[in-house]
Design a protein around this nucleic acid. Structure first.
Lengths: 207, 207
DNA sequence: GACCTTGTTGGACACTTGCGCAATAGTCCA
DNA sequence: TGGACTATTGCGCAAGTGTCCAACAAGGTC
């Protein structure tokens, strides 16, 4: 049977959604046009009618996933007036965003970046977006006197990199490190970077 | 024509070498049996005569590359009696090992780990090996009184993760961070972890 | 109602992949 | 020299890939 007819914008969004579902299930490298079409309940030709190449589609789907996480984190931070609270909120939602499937997509994106130009551009842009989100909070905190930090952009790169590096070990091979430890270590490091006393960012609650 | 006849051990090594060459050129995911055979100057059937599956071959080739780096770093550290000198040597050779191609293999391995069991096992084992190499030095330094560190295993995970997370940004997408900055930041972090004064590990020279 | 625009189909195409297997050729020993 | 052993071949197979395109059908317009 034929899939219901959609407007170009709707259909494009539907394709991206379907691609994302498949990516979360099989990983970025193992996502095929046919799988995406089947997930969407349509033919495979339709996918190429909206996306010139697979590369483009994968990049768009990855962008959607990463943007959702980024927006969720940014929004949850918006709710806190205090920069210290914002940092707590950041770690709480960032760790949640990394959970399960999501972080595997980042691993895929970083590896595929060397082979898929569109993925590289997207991945880079989103990494910078995360860094700038963090740098913004830090600068604000320095302004209010909550934080002491001479290099907010650098500090945010370092905090994110430690977080990513640790999460990587958790996701890629289930090594001794569990998620709770990753969170605690990262928070402790951030406290040092921002001139806070040990434990002032901690004990946010359940993970 | 027929490739020269080799003993099983020789041939196995030759296959691994060839596979590594292709991996360095095309990346792990894009390495095929036929490419390996061509690189070696033999038929594709021969590869499967020595490796039951592609998964196994990729894992073996990755292991070879990573072991070479690990051994080189370990050996260069052996030469220094002082734990502080050993740490300097570690950073010097680790950063060099990450250069260019080598780190891309780690990115590939981490991403492929979810799909290729043999790669996951190898990657995990080698990551732990790096961590233990570092933990050993730290423990020694704590013993001699050069370092102050209450948790050498944890500290080595954190130092390595920061290093990997930063290097990742450098390799995956050429973001603002260059290799020199990665080295400086990691060294500075290690100094803090080990209770050293700022700059006591730095200025190792050219990178 | 007819008509045209356009979202949608489903298969063809050319290519690649890992893998298996009978045939072949090199090497060493009796 | 002959024979056995085995490293090596090279093609075939089945399953998969992205990409393309002529045909089809659903919507809106007159």
């Amino acid at each position: 049977m034929m899939a219901i007819r959609m407007s170009p914008t709707e259909r494009r969004a539907a394709i991206v959604d379907a691609a994302l579902q498949v990516m979360l299930r099989n990983g970025m490298a193992a996502t095929t046009v046919r799988d995406v079409a089947e997930q969407m309940g349509s033919s495979s030709g339709l996918v190429h009618h909206y996306f010139a190449s697979m590369d483009e589609l994968l990049a768009a789907a990855f962008e959607q996933a990463a943007m959702l996480d980024l927006d969720a984190t940014a929004e949850s931070m918006q709710g806190c007036a205090d920069p210290v609270e914002q940092m707590r909120s950041f770690f709480g939602t960032y760790i949640r965003a990394e959970q399960d499937w999501a972080f595997q997509l980042w691993l895929d994106a970083w590896a595929e970046a060397s082979r898929r130009p569109a993925v590289r551009v997207t991945s880079q842009r989103l990494n910078v977006a995360w860094q700038q989100l963090l740098a913004g909070v830090i600068e604000e905190g320095v302004g209010t006197g909550d934080f002491v930090c001479t290099d907010p952009p650098g500090a945010s790169w370092r905090i994110l990199s430690l977080l990513d590096g640790l999460a990587l070990q958790t996701v890629a091979h289930r090594v001794d490190l569990d998620r709770g430890v990753v969170l605690r270590w990262s928070v402790a490091y951030a406290e040092r970077e921002l001139g806070l006393t040990q434990g002032s960012l901690g004990a946010t609650g359940k993970v």
